[in-house]
């Protein structure tokens, strides 16, 4: 199969959008945290917890959207933990984040074993099915690629619009951005930097968990221990790549997913026969590092990212 053939096929772009969806949720979550000034390295573990929480809730009888809500709530709980330690106590965001990832991951695996002690393969659920948007899905190429996805994918794109609108068009968004740029000014306005930052971390963590839940409720129909597999760390790179802007981050996620979809397909071409498959699997991670290096030159990093704020301190 030719490269041109791959890039012009609807199936390829449909796969790219599908692969991008969990990344979009989690990237938006991380972006919200970082715009408020908090680096959230709990993302990887929160995605694991979200993937499990959403799936187990649906397995226990909740509707699919109920599963999404449970995942969101689980993410918020870990977000509250992260926020409490990193914002009012001002502990190292690096250490707290790694700790939250370790805790969320181990709690998830423990709960899995407690709830399902004797299963060799995890039970399956009835996952989200593709929904063809009337009229739009009939457009050649674009229709089947973009408008025959599952509802959760549409929700991911709507989330980007919502995040952009809130961040740039509302007083709340202004306060969040200011908390990440100039917390002293926020405090001078009589607003609580602590409350804004904690709120951003809690809500952002909720979206990370929904990103995880996309894997179990939409992309697949079951939960596996290593299914998140570094996606959280990739999302951190995507936020940098997107220069902390929702639209650019979305573009980055889709581009990244397209590369991922491409490497899967290239493995089946004559190139894949000579190049070891591990090299293809490495590409997403290498690409993330390259993106970080390239973007670092003109990064517009929030000025107060990772800067703790103590009231009364100048």
């Amino acid at each position: 199969m030719d490269l041109i053939d791959i890039l012009t096929s609807a199936a390829f772009w449909a796969a790219a959008i599908r692969i991008a969806s969990p990344l979009i949720f989690a990237t938006m979550g991380e972006l919200i945290c970082e715009r408020a000034g908090v680096l959230n390295l709990g993302i990887e573990g929160i995605m694991v917890a979200g993937a499990f929480a959403g799936w187990i809730a649906v397995w226990a009888g909740l509707p699919l959207w109920g599963g999404v809500a449970v995942a969101f709530a689980a993410g918020m709980a870990f977000g509250l933990l992260h926020a409490t330690l990193s914002v009012p106590f001002g502990l190292s965001q690096h250490v707290v984040g790694i700790g939250v990832t370790l805790l969320a991951t181990s709690l998830t695996f423990y709960t899995y074993r407690v709830v399902l002690p004797e299963v060799s393969s995890p039970p399956k659920i009835e996952a989200f099915q593709p929904f063809e948007v009337p009229i739009l899905s009939q457009i050649p190429l674009i229709g089947p690629a973009f408008f025959a996805q599952t509802p959760l994918t549409y929700a991911a794109f709507l989330l980007v619009i919502a995040v952009a609108l809130v961040l740039y068009r509302t007083p709340l968004g202004l306060a969040v951005r200011a908390a990440g740029e100039n917390p002293q000014a926020v405090a001078a306005q009589g607003l609580s930097v602590t409350a804004i930052r904690m709120g951003a971390v809690i809500v952002g963590s909720g979206f990370m968990a929904v990103g995880g839940a996309f894997l179990t409720l939409s992309a697949f129909d079951s939960f596996f221990f290593d299914m998140v597999n570094g996606r959280g760390w990739i999302c951190i790179a995507l936020v940098v790549f997107g220069a902390w802007k929702p639209g650019k981050a979305l573009l980055g996620a889709v581009l990244f997913a397209a590369f991922d979809a491409l490497q899967i397909r290239l493995q089946q071409t004559p190139i894949g026969a000579v190049v070891p498959y591990q090299l293809f699997l490495m590409m997403p991670y290498i690409l993330s590092i390259l993106a970080l290096v390239v973007m670092s030159r003109r990064a517009e990093v929030p000025a107060a990212l990772m800067v703790t704020f103590n009231k009364g301190e100048r």
Binding site: G230, W233, S288, L292
Partner: peptide
């Protein structure tokens, strides 16, 4: 370049483990 080493070292874990997998096969 001022690239945060947390993310790069984490990503290197995945890259290097795939490299070891290649070596072992």
């Amino acid at each position: 370049f001022g690239v945060d080493e947390v993310v790069t070292t984490l990503l290197f874990n995945f890259i290097f483990l795939l490299f070891v997998s290649y070596l072992l096969e």
